[in-house]
């Protein structure tokens, strides 16, 4: 357990600058976009006041009071682009977290495999670290939102602003509404499914590393197999199934069960490959 935690820490430590950079870029890009939009809006409000009410028809008019929900709506791209960057970097790191240990002359994988700890811990440490990166960026974004609301309060004088609820702010942004679901149960399903997909990819990567040329093929077959197993209840056992029709509750339980099986098999297979089949 101890060595597992140390490995997690090692993985976090190696990635820390990238993580900090991603958070920094997100904070700066989103906040500056926000401030720029607010200043532009306030200038436009001034204009609208001077020119009178009919000017409204010609501009994308700005509402009488600005709130964070409106600001988020008008600053969408500035918020979404850093999020896309984070997603891209983390997606690449799903692969890179393994392949970086094989790269170059300094193949660190030697050292990792020689550690006096179960090889399973290497696998678990990498998934733990990756999940932590994902969740920490989500948490960072969630913490940034009230901070950005504060920025809004500092930039916009009190007579020109009104309140909005953080849930509305999230929902008006096309990316955040998907990444931060309203219910915690849905959060569990989405990120749980994401975790299982990453586990599948990890095992596929280890298949590639263990079997040289055939490895890529095995990896792809493994991914396809897992996807089929999980989709099976939804495709083949629904109400109009000719094999065995299941009631909705039964389908739900079956899908959850199969997802857990896929997760467990991926961890087991990945660990076994690391222990018995991997070659450097």
């Amino acid at each position: 357990m101890n060595r597992y935690l140390k490995l997690v820490h090692m993985e976090i430590h190696r990635f820390r600058w990238i993580l900090i950079a991603l958070m920094g870029i997100t904070a700066i890009c989103q906040s500056s976009g926000l401030i720029w939009t607010l200043k532009k809006a306030m200038a436009q409000l001034e204009e609208q006041k001077i020119q009178g009410a009919d000017m409204r028809k010609y501009f994308d008019s700005v509402p009488d009071t600005l709130n964070f929900e409106w600001a988020m709506f008008s600053t969408q791209m500035w918020f979404i682009l850093p999020i896309l960057l984070c997603i891209a970097v983390l997606s690449l790191y799903v692969f890179f977290i393994w392949y970086r240990d094989w790269m170059g002359r300094h193949t660190f994988i030697y050292r990792l495999l020689m550690l006096p700890t179960a090889r399973r811990n290497l696998f678990l440490a990498k998934i733990t670290a990756l999940l932590l990166f994902v969740f920490s960026i989500v948490a960072f974004q969630l913490i940034m939102l009230p901070v950005q609301e504060l920025v809004l309060k500092l930039v916009v004088p009190v007579e020109l602003r009104s309140e909005s609820h953080i849930v509305d702010v999230i929902n008006i942004n096309q990316a955040l509404v998907e990444l931060i679901p309203r219910q915690f149960e849905q959060f569990f399903y989405i990120y749980g499914l994401g975790t299982i997909v990453v586990l599948m990819f990890f095992t596929a990567i280890l298949l590639e590393r263990s079997y040289q040329r055939m490895g890529i093929l095995y990896g792809i077959l493994y991914l396809a197999g897992c996807a089929l197993v999980v989709a099976a209840p939804l495709l083949y056992f629904g109400l109009d199934s000719s094999i065995i029709p299941l009631y909705p509750m039964e389908i739900y339980v079956l899908v959850l069960f199969l997802l857990s099986v896929v997760a467990a098999v991926s961890v087991w297979l990945g660990s076994r490959l690391l222990a018995k089949k991997i070659t450097v």
């Binding site: 820490h9 976090i12 969740f135 960072f140 849930v167």
Partner: peptide, 27 residues
């Protein structure tokens, strides 16, 4: 020298936990 990792975990738990159990109430 583990402070970064521990801090990251605390950030994660508090950020997500606060939103789902406090932040999104009374919407």
């Amino acid at each position: 020298h583990y402070w970064f990792s521990v801090g990251l975990v605390l950030l994660t738990v508090s950020g997500i936990g606060t939103y789902y159990f406090v932040g999104n109430q009374n919407h």
